[in-house]
């Protein structure tokens, strides 16, 4: 047991109270200005603090790699057999899809659709997770110095991961698709019905505002609609698992299983400009925010 802090001087106590009240008052009276100020100062501070994070992340990565290469090889043979079976199945599907793709190419040419340019993307590595328990985010090793800004979409080859919400000079915070505070415009691929995909508290996702007359069913795939936000049209978000249709409700909603396993993602692509202007100078979709 130890004696408490009796030695704090009266002046220090008064100063502490003054600082405390000033901070409280400041955040109540000038919330936006103070947030912007601290965020601006946070840029270089974030750059400095990103180095210990990178250091720990690289040590952690090294340990994980060693474990993966030498220790966790027990089930590899069984896994290999499974993967070979899966490969055969996918080869069959691939030839069917090639057929479908060539048919789509022919039809697109017939309808004189503009070929959609690939969006500009930057690759980044995941170096950490949220520092708290209240948000589902990942931390990337690239920030505002690499041209990454808030509201840019983040994807992997499998589909949508989330959206950039905060940046420092050397890092970016990505709010995952499974976070309840995230909202992405989605589209049911089969029925073409649009809705909003939001995360849920247990860590899945939910497609809201599906029209009542929609014949959506479990197993339907949901993709980005490309109408708003930092994503082009057609990126996989998830697959519908259950549908909720409440009595008297104006819309139905559906629970989704996200396409990307956000807990295991290691490398991502940040979409810096989802819409490329067409030949006539007009954009194919909403314009991204102008860079400062």
């Amino acid at each position: 047991m130890r004696m408490a802090n009796f030695r704090s001087s009266y002046g220090a106590r008064r100063l502490a109270l003054g600082v405390f009240l000033s901070v409280l008052l400041g955040f109540f009276l000038l919330p936006h200005q103070l947030q912007t100020l601290f965020q601006e100062i946070g840029g270089p501070v974030g750059w400095v603090l990103s180095w210990p994070i990178r250091l720990v992340a690289s040590v952690q990565g090294g340990i994980g790699e060693t474990w993966g290469h030498y220790v966790a090889l027990q089930d590899v043979e069984e896994e290999n057999r499974q993967l070979r079976k899966e490969l055969e199945l996918l080869q069959g599907q691939n030839s069917q899809l090639r057929e479908a793709a060539s048919a789509t190419d022919r039809l697109t040419a017939l309808l004189e659709f503009k070929s959609q340019a690939l969006p500009a993307m930057t690759a980044a590595q995941v170096i950490g997770r949220d520092t708290g328990n209240w948000y589902r985010t990942i931390l990337l090793n690239k920030g505002s110095a690499d041209g990454i800004q808030a509201d840019m979409g983040v994807v992997t080859s499998a589909g949508v991961v989330g959206r950039v919400v905060k940046t420092t000079m050397a890092t970016a915070v990505v709010l995952l698709v499974s976070d309840p505070n995230n909202a992405i415009a989605g589209l049911i691929q089969r029925t073409r019905d649009e809705g909003i995909v939001e995360g849920t508290t247990p860590g899945l996702a939910r497609l809201k505002y599906i029209p009542l007359l929609s014949n959506v069913r479990a197993g339907d795939r949901v993709v980005t609609s490309g109408l708003v936000g930092g994503f082009p049209r057609g990126l996989a978000i998830g697959t519908i698992t259950t549908i909720d249709k409440e009595e008297g409700a104006l819309f139905q909603s559906a629970e989704l299983r996200p396409e990307v396993d956000v807990n295991r993602v290691e490398e991502v692509l940040v979409i810096q400009s989802p819409y490329i202007p067409g030949e006539d100078g007009k954009s194919d979709g909403p314009l991204p925010k102008a860079k400062p």
Binding site: T131, Y135, T137
Partner: peptide, 14 residues
């Protein structure tokens, strides 16, 4: 901590 999280800066500091 709020610089590396989606948490609100003011709420985290206060």
């Amino acid at each position: 901590m709020s610089l590396f999280s989606a948490a609100d800066l003011a709420a985290s500091m206060v």
